[in-house]
């Protein structure tokens, strides 16, 4: 177990290193002098001097990376020459919104996927299983940006439900209930994709697990079907579910971009797209770095949970 965790931590550090190189190199993809792009309309000799000192743009590329990663490790992602805000503080303000959206969506997704997958698995090919199978397959082909646009069209516009349309976001600190209302559609949109994936993965694993001999043995002990499902079948069937969730939650950050963009919710995605529009390259770079490392870290956490759920994995 300890060896396993150590290997995983090493991998986490390795991947973060690769990500940092990728994020660092982004500004060199800009055609021509990166300083021109980063400074934008604020291109003055004074600002140029600051930027060159900040990024070491006149030095070799390896030195530039070392200077940059040194700043990053001290929690400094630079100060935007467009908005004049520190990149870290902008990210700090936006990130909680993404986390709240993801948290809400995952509650909905798990709370619906787990019981429905159990129902389906109990009677594979029964009517419920067929309906959910066809329905979830269809939903696989509906991208989140279509779901959110349609929801806004029908719920906010046609039905006129308050606080759900574009630009109706209210921060959590301001008003808890209105904040929740304004996040209903975004969270629901994110939960649809998660639900489909979780339902399908868990259903097929449960069906496989229920064929196992140890389930027959558990039945022979005279315990209830419900208890067999939750205590005996669920846990060994949840490895793939957790693995999928780890990857999916990372992907949700990206789906969140789309939703935030449409509803003008100032999370990381909205901030990122605005930064791209205003050519605020340092901010884009910072968000990419934070999001990528965050996604890898979430994967790592789920890997760890899987190990606790199924002790067979780290023993292998």
């Amino acid at each position: 177990m300890i060896k396993y965790v150590a290997r995983r931590v090493a991998l986490l550090i390795g991947i973060s290193f690769v990500i940092s190189i990728g994020s660092f190199y982004l500004i060199h993809l800009l055609p021509g002098d990166p300083a021109v792009f980063i400074l934008g309309t604020n291109d003055s000799p004074a600002n140029r001097a600051i930027l060159f000192k900040q990024l070491g743009l006149d030095r070799s590329i390896v030195t530039q990376y070392l200077i940059w990663i040194g700043h990053v490790l001290h929690g400094n992602l630079g100060i935007s020459f467009i908005s004049h805000n520190s990149v870290v503080s902008t990210i700090k303000a936006a990130l909680p919104i993404d986390l709240e959206m993801i948290f809400l969506s995952q509650i909905v997704a798990f709370a619906s996927a787990v019981p429905l997958a159990m129902r389906s698995a109990r009677k594979p090919d029964g009517w419920l299983d067929r309906v959910l199978g066809a329905g979830s397959f269809t939903l696989l082909s509906v991208p989140p940006f279509i779901i959110i646009v349609l929801l806004v069209l029908f719920v906010s516009i046609k039905l006129g439900v308050a606080n759900t349309g574009p630009a109706s976001f209210v921060p959590l600190s301001q008003n808890f209930l209105v904040n929740l209302e304004s996040l209903v559609l975004p969270s629901f949109t994110l939960s649809v994709g998660s639900f489909v994936v979780y339902y399908r993965v868990l259903r097929s694993d449960l069906i496989a697990t229920l064929q196992e001999e140890f389930i027959t043995m558990a039945r022979s002990k005279g315990i209830s079907a419900r208890r067999i499902m939750w205590r005996h079948a669920f846990r060994p069937s949840s490895v793939a579910l957790l693995g999928t969730a780890g990857v999916n939650i990372g992907g949700l950050l990206a789906s969140g971009f789309v939703v935030q963009y449409l509803l003008a919710i100032p999370g990381l995605g909205y901030t990122l797209i605005s930064a791209i529009d205003t050519s605020d390259y340092l901010l884009v770079q910072g968000i990419v770095l934070v999001v990528s490392v965050g996604v890898v870290f979430i994967n790592f956490v789920f890997d760890f949970i899987i190990n606790i759920v199924d002790p067979r994995i780290s023993r292998e």
């Binding site: 001999e213 002990k221 005996h232 846990r235 060994p236 759920v309 199924d310 067979r312």
Partner: peptide, 18 residues
């Protein structure tokens, strides 16, 4: 369990591994 119980064939698969 109380009136009738079974000892299964393959102990490698008949116990819940987790």
């Amino acid at each position: 369990g109380t009136d009738v119980a079974m000892v299964f064939q393959d102990p490698m698969t008949s116990l819940n591994p987790v």
